[in-house]
Design a protein around this nucleic acid. Structure first.
Lengths: 134, 134
DNA sequence: CAACGGATGTGAGGAAATATAACATGAAAT
DNA sequence: ATTTCATGTTATATTTCCTCACATCCGTTG
């Protein structure tokens, strides 16, 4: 449900994404420039990548390594887009983004994560936050 | 298994952690100064927080809100440390950190994430990377 | 072959995020 | 009334990231 929200939560700076994907900053920015990814931005205009973004970049990298060019990748990725409830999800996200300010959204997510982590947990070993990224 | 590795992978800058935990940067740094957390550092000396770190901060925050002071929190947290295979886990992590350079470790993790995400996956919806953070 | 466009590297210049350190402050403890 | 704890605030330095421009390599095409 809010899985999509969690997965699209802006978390990582480009430096981390670089090491996670082994792509250069130049490449990442270039792919964004050509619409393959669409990371969020901080107030100060810095890119903030979500899990979805990183997933997508790994997918892109894999295709690049197979010799697929950007146009081809664009095709492949667009085909992977869920055919069902596409507009539904889309509108849901937009709804949230329009009705709530960025700050409010962030706070909401944080609250959700926090509360969920609060109960039914006895050992730190089990973890709190990370449980909600699966 | 490598769960602990994933959970302790340095990912977030302090700004994100602030919004995730609703703690001030001052607080976060203060808690580190007093040994409650121990985030990794980038080459350029910036703090890099893992899921474990964020979990811990949420735990700390919860205790703070209950009126527990730092000494008390230190106690509580130390008690949560797994009594079993403590040294085992510890030594395992240290082993990795000693035998492999930071860069190699990072690359290894990235590889693992990447490869695991590569197979048995047909829809982007399912996600690749995020599956490995649970 | 020469020219062109796609994909990436590199460097300049500037802005944002973070680091440490020092001092300020309110509340709690002594 | 002091002292200590936990946090805020401000100043200054560094690192990371931004955009933009130009260079380079390479495959495709006229």
């Amino acid at each position: 449900m809010n899985d999509e929200i969690r997965r699209s939560m802006p978390l990582f700076p480009i430096g981390i994404v670089k090491s996670l994907t082994d792509l250069s900053a130049r490449q990442i920015r270039y792919y964004e420039e050509h619409g393959l990814i669409n990371p969020a931005r901080s107030e100060g205009n810095r890119r903030q990548f979500s899990f979805n973004d990183v997933d997508r970049l790994l997918e892109i990298k894999s295709l690049i390594e197979k010799g697929v060019n950007l146009a081809g990748i664009k095709q492949v990725l667009s085909m992977k887009e869920v055919p069902e409830n596409r507009e539904v999800e889309q509108s849901k996200v937009e709804e949230i983004h329009n009705e709530l300010s960025e700050k409010e959204l962030r706070r909401m997510l944080q609250q959700e994560l926090f509360n969920a982590g609060r109960h039914g947990k006895s050992s730190l070993r089990q973890g709190e936050l990370s449980r909600f990224f699966h």
